[in-house]
């Protein structure tokens, strides 16, 4: 996977062939839902384009709350060669690893990616990762609908871990709040894209089959 970034479509096509695109038994309190493959592909594609081509293969990225690993794998396909996926749910990591094995079969060029998984709680108090260990942190956090400000805790962790960039998805309805908060932190932040999150009815309390949620992809440059 040298050279130019593959297209969103190419990444998406590969991701859509993975066996575990959904959680087997999602846990409500963690707000588990899988990143839709087209969103994962777009995010990864954007992240890859933001990094110089000659640097892309030597940055260390982390995917916080990786779940079944879709976003982490999308990053590998986009040409980021060093990705660590962490999640509090160690069973989900088993599925992530099965996905990785399936991807290496589908796309032998990506076998060389240094992709790792670890069970880590993405919370400021119980985080098991050393600060500023990564160049890029990518996250599709819980949106905080079940547990208030769950997404903010994830974002704080991401800014604590990354040296340069954080890419994060948040509900568009929280845009002005987030923008003020990030400004207070002294981060340079911008909404890079407004996307549509088609959240399939993962939980029994989701009455409709699928709900579309407007989400923002934020690009945050971390204060050094």
């Amino acid at each position: 996977m040298r050279g130019s970034v593959p297209s969103v479509r190419e990444i998406e096509t590969l991701l859509s062939q993975l066996p575990w695109r959904q959680f087997q038994s999602p846990r409500v309190h963690l707000e588990q839902y899988t990143t839709p493959v087209h969103l994962a592909a777009r995010i990864a594609h954007h992240v890859a384009l933001c990094i110089d081509e000659d640097e892309r293969r030597s940055v260390q990225a982390v995917d916080l709350g990786t779940g079944t690993g879709i976003l982490a794998l999308a990053l590998c396909l986009a040409g980021l060669n060093h990705v660590l996926g962490v999640d509090v749910d160690s069973e989900a990591l088993e599925l992530a690893r099965a996905n990785a094995a399936a991807l290496w079969e589908l796309c032998p060029q990506s076998v060389g990616a240094v992709l790792e998984f670890a069970a880590v709680d993405v919370q400021p108090n119980s985080l098991a990762l050393a600060p500023k260990s990564f160049d890029v942190a990518v996250l599709n956090p819980p949106f905080g609908t079940r547990q208030r400000s769950a997404d903010i805790a994830f974002l704080d962790v991401a800014c604590h871990l990354s040296r340069r960039f954080v890419y994060s998805l948040h509900k568009s309805s929280t845009r002005s709040y987030l923008s003020r908060r990030l400004e207070r932190f002294g981060c340079t932040a911008q909404v890079y894209a407004r996307l549509r999150f088609d959240l399939p009815a993962t939980y029994v309390f989701h009455r409709e089959r699928a709900v579309d949620i407007d989400v923002d992809l934020w690009q945050i440059e971390v204060k050094r």
């Binding site: 060093h82 790792e116 880590v120 098991a128």
Partner: peptide, 11 residues
């Protein structure tokens, strides 16, 4: 990998 080990700390 030992790379990952180097990034981990006790929670």
């Amino acid at each position: 990998r030992l790379l990952t080990h180097n990034l981990l700390i006790c929670p």
